[in-house]
């Protein structure tokens, strides 16, 4: 039996009837067409499905859509539109910190959350923050570099603003 779900996705109010067994990832991808959230393992091991739920990254494959009742969800599409991670995206592009692009959504989510909590992380801290994000293409170094550069740029801008 479907359950009525009321939630906020990328700033829009969403009301949909969903089957309880539908994961948040499947709901976003299939019901809302937000295919930027990817599925790589469906058991919380690869990080391709990360979305921001009430401001923090969670695995959309491990959250049931019905558990998002009353929550605020932001997907890569929403994050892109707000421009909040525009500099991070630009550094990923500049450093070629992605190849096939399948992990990129999750990498951006983890990076964005890290930089919010720890504005100038060390390289080890960056790697630790990515410990649940699998990338088969890059070997990770370019991703670490892109996050590192973003952090230092943001810090320099904050400093300059003072």
């Amino acid at each position: 039996m479907k359950v009525l779900l009321s939630t906020t996705v990328n700033g829009e109010q969403v009301q949909e009837a969903v089957l309880p067994r539908t994961s948040l990832a499947d709901f976003l991808r299939e019901d809302l067409g937000l295919t930027g959230t990817h599925l790589g393992c469906e058991m919380g091991a690869c990080g391709a499905c990360l979305v921001l739920m009430d401001g923090v990254p969670v695995h959309a494959c491990l959250v049931l859509a019905v558990q998002a009742e009353g929550s605020t969800i932001e997907t890569i599409e929403g994050l892109n539109e707000t421009g909040a991670a525009a500099d991070l995206q630009a550094h990923f592009h500049d450093r070629n910190a992605l190849q096939c692009g399948f992990c990129t959504n999750g990498m951006l989510m983890s990076a964005q959350a890290l930089l919010e909590a720890n504005p100038v992380p060390t390289r080890d801290e960056i790697r630790d923050a990515l410990s649940g994000n699998y990338c088969r293409c890059t070997g990770y170094e370019a991703i670490v570099d892109a996050i590192d550069t973003t952090a230092r740029d943001r810090a320099a801008r904050t400093e300059a603003a003072k």
Partner: peptide
């Protein structure tokens, strides 16, 4: 315990 996103939930 697992990874940051798991720990969030």
């Amino acid at each position: 315990v697992a990874h940051p996103a798991i720990r969030n939930r």
